[in-house]
Amino acid sequence: MRVTNSMMMRNFLNNLYSNTHKIDKLQRQLSSYKKLNRFSDDPMGYFRSLELKSRLDKIQQYSRNINDATSWLQQTETAVMEMNEIMKVIYENVLNASADTQADVQKNIVANNLIQLKEQIFQIMNTTFGDKYIFGGYNTTKAPFVNTGSEILYNGINLISATSDELSDIMSQKLNYEVGKGSYINVSINGLQVLGAGEDNLFNILDELIVALQNDEPASTFSPYIEKIKARQDNILNVIAEVGGRINRLEFLYERYSLDELNYETIRSSIEDIDMAEVVTKLEMARSVYNAALAVGSNIIQPSLVNFLW
């Protein structure tokens, strides 16, 4: 084949360009610490890394939701535990009152105790998390329990005269946080779940008890209330168990997401990130090839027959 000067020049330049191109690409990888700078570099890899990124986003979002839900439920747990303690005190007081040996004066003391305790329950049931009421169902902005003096209202409804429709509407109010794809956790414990509704709601029981104590009713009057109080207490224990259960579920999910996050992060990194040692080695190699090409170039370009004739 006849080889002309322009061919040698062209060849030399082509090789030089391909070397500089390689160096440029490696340097881009080094400076960005990313294997994939454009998605055409590796469309499928890029697609996968995008998918992983969106999955990671979701997991992080779920984890944040779980944290918020856990704090809310822990606040609820504290409040319900306090309720449990108070119920124990009420139970003892009523037990005392039902004993035949109790004098009127002591019944009065018990009545006063109960009035105090009722006030305490009232405060606990209006507990807030941040500035949101936790026992109000959808109602998080206003105190759910209001004492008008003549009656106690829950979200504006009289508990004794509430219709079953109203009650079931209240009971169905859930504050759901999304903690997984299509999976929700209800952070709300309804006030009525704790206190009960209708004639047997705790406030009504206490009110009746206080009146009976103040009227110095005979001991036998109180024994049915012992059962009622006991039932409320069981109810509250159930609520504690439920809150505990929800918190456990959240903790379990949180662990799982932490693990998932780590795994996805590892996969994403293996797709996107460079292997430093590998890229640096390649770059060094490309540089030395480039230098060699330059050296060869000076050999190709300089001499011609001109240097040797005459």
């Binding site: 006849r2 002309t4 322009s6 061919m7 062209r10 011609s304 027959l305």
Partner: peptide
Amino acid sequence: VDNIDYNRMSVSAVSIDEELSNLV
């Protein structure tokens, strides 16, 4: 295209060495 152009150069481009030897 480079390859074809390369072939074209092989036929049509000037080789200084060749021209000098022709000159002689």
